[in-house]
């Protein structure tokens, strides 16, 4: 018998701090698998966000840089402009990218910055224990919308992939989900394609990954996956928004 599935080399062999059943861990593995399969660990530099993944520089075996909240796309720009032949990715949550970091992501995208952005959308602030995020759904309870998100007070959730797809800079934008095995495998292909877009110097690539937060949603891990399918996907439809026909 031979091993058909094991932890990727680009993931450091240490336990991760994420809550039980949190799909951050899966997203990390998919990024690491893409790095392994494209054999780019030696020339990749990742940028960690502020949020639950703030210290994922400990989990990737490539060089890593931790960025101030929301500024990962700018940090990545500084790195990529300094090392144009290296592969640069950011890993950001919805608070980091869609709230404080909206200007940075919009301008990195519109510059067509040749970086890859892995954007984890779990409709909540996890690390700081459950506040409303820009992606929090209408009616969703959070510690800062205890009676459910009210658009009259907190406005409407942002669809980042669609928003960035209106720009001409991006080469590839896809929204994927981790709520079941089939979708995880599709998500992996999307992440790998995003890195290939960068390798082919085609420009800005972003994969929005619908993800769970069992702890702050108050659901067990299995129920949380259901919520992604039943409540999040209807508002955040999956699919390729830019670069569907892009050959890389």
């Amino acid at each position: 018998m031979e091993v058909v599935f094991k932890a990727p080399h680009a993931l450091v062999d240490v336990p991760m701090h994420y809550c039980p059943g949190c799909t951050h861990g899966i997203a990390h593995r998919l990024v690491a698998e893409a790095i392994d399969e494209l054999d780019i660990e030696g020339k990749t530099i990742g940028v960690s966000p502020v949020g639950c993944a703030y210290n994922n520089y400990l989990y990737f075996n490539c060089d890593m840089v931790q960025a101030a909240h929301g500024r990962a796309p700018a940090v990545a720009t500084g790195i990529k402009r300094s090392l144009p032949d290296n592969i640069v990715f950011t890993y950001q949550g919805d608070g980091d990218l869609a709230a404080i970091g909206t200007a940075e992501i919009v301008h990195a995208a519109t510059r067509g910055e040749n970086i890859t952005v892995v954007f984890i959308n779990n409709t909540i602030y996890g690390m700081t224990s459950g506040q409303m995020a820009p992606t929090t759904l209408l009616g969703q309870m959070t510690t800062t919308t205890p009676f459910g998100r009210d658009p009259k007070v907190n406005g409407f959730p942002i669809r980042i992939s669609e928003m960035l797809a209106t720009l001409e800079g991006p080469a590839y934008i896809e929204r994927v989900s981790l709520h079941d095995v089939r979708h995880i495998r599709k998500a992996k292909e999307a992440v790998k394609k995003a890195f290939k877009v960068q390798l082919a110097r085609k420009g800005f690539s972003l994969v929005e990954v619908l993800s769970t937060c069992p702890t702050n949603w108050g659901l067990n891990p299995v129920e949380a996956l259901k919520r992604v399918e039943k409540e999040m996907i209807p508002h955040y439809p999956l699919g390729v928004f830019v670069g569907a026909d892009l050959e890389v």
Binding site: V3, V4, P15, T23, G25, V181
Partner: peptide, 19 residues
């Protein structure tokens, strides 16, 4: 059957699959 569904959905790389 070595389908690796378990390993694919495991967030913590707990599972290694051989076939």
């Amino acid at each position: 059957i070595g389908c690796a569904f378990c390993a694919t959905i495991c967030p913590d790389c707990v599972i290694t699959v051989e076939k």
